[in-house]
Amino acid sequence: MSSIVPGPQKKLEEEITAARAGAKPLDARDLNPSAPRHEALTGLDDWPESLRSAVETEYTRVAALDSNRRKTADLAVPGLVTALDTLLEGVADRIQAGKPRLFGRASAGEASPEAAGILGIPSDELEAVSGRGEHRTALRTIKQLRSQLKELADTPDHARLTRLTTFVIRLAVVVDADPQTATALAPIALVRFAESAVDPQRSATFAEKLDSWIHARATLGSD
């Protein structure tokens, strides 16, 4: 009895189809065997699956862009969009769960100063108070960001995607490590992003961002 083993071209087509469906990120060497295979990321073993998936898929996209392989970077986008959408859904759930009671308000000053610094929120904005109205605005902003992700999945814009990915992963890391952030700081961070405030990691490399995310999770999680 014989079996048919798919040839290299058939296997490549299957890998590309899976990547476009967001089921499996496409490795650089799937498209180009001579392309450098990036090293496995470390320090993520105890991270939630949703966060780890987003970081790993972003690494695949950035590594492809850094080596001028735009097609491979484009193929990583659907999986990245799915991962980021999951993170935003989780942040929205945390905000919803911690929303102030009717006529109640929460001060951002009650949140961790370290968390505020990681999110790039200036100290003079920590006196702001967050009520039900601010939380509704935050949830609307998340809805808008999820809509933007759907657009980027269809028509990749890597500059926009880098800014959005950096913000979402950073926010999700902080909220996961310090849940109070969802109530006190996430609404402020979301408004600042919507208003195109300068991102504190705008010129950072992926390696620098990753180091800061790992450090943030370890620092906030130990409090």
Rank of each mutant, 00 (worst) to 15 (best):
P8D: 15
P8F: 05
Q9G: 08
Q9E: 12
Q9Y: 07
K10A: 12
K10G: 07
K11L: 13
K11T: 14
L12R: 14
E13I: 13
E13N: 14
E13R: 13
E14A: 15
E15Q: 14
I16H: 07
T17D: 15
A18L: 10
A18N: 11
A18P: 09
A18V: 01
A19D: 01
A19M: 08
R20A: 09
G22P: 02
G22W: 00
A23H: 15
A23E: 13
K24H: 14
P25L: 12
P25W: 13
L26Y: 08
L26V: 05
L26S: 02
L26D: 03
D27Q: 15
A28V: 09
A28Y: 09
A28H: 06
R29W: 06
R29P: 00
P33V: 01
P33N: 08
P33A: 05
S34V: 08
S34P: 09
S34M: 03
A35C: 01
A35Q: 00
A35I: 09
P36V: 01
P36N: 07
P36L: 05
R37G: 06
R37A: 15
H38L: 08
H38F: 10
H38W: 09
A40T: 10
A40Y: 10
L41K: 08
L41E: 01
T42R: 11
T42G: 09
T42N: 10
T42S: 15
T42M: 10
T42Q: 12
G43C: 02
W47H: 02
W47K: 07
W47V: 01
P48S: 03
P48W: 08
E49C: 03
S50L: 00
R52I: 02
R52C: 01
R52Y: 03
R52P: 03
S53T: 15
S53Q: 12
A54R: 07
A54I: 08
V55M: 05
V55T: 06
V55F: 00
V55E: 00
T57A: 01
T57K: 06
E58G: 11
Y59V: 11
Y59E: 04
T60Q: 11
T60L: 14
R61M: 04
R61Y: 00
V62W: 05
A64C: 05
D66Q: 13
D66Y: 10
D66A: 15
S67T: 14
S67Y: 02
N68G: 03
N68P: 03
N68M: 12
R69F: 05
R70F: 14
R70H: 12
K71H: 13
T72Y: 00
T72M: 04
A73P: 09
D74A: 02
L75R: 07
L75C: 00
A76R: 01
A76W: 03
G79Y: 04
L80R: 06
V81Q: 08
T82S: 15
A83E: 04
A83M: 00
L84Y: 09
L84G: 08
L84I: 11
D85T: 13
T86S: 13
L87G: 02
L87Q: 10
E89R: 13
E89N: 12
G90L: 06
G90K: 10
V91M: 08
A92E: 11
A92S: 11
D93C: 02
D93H: 03
I95M: 12
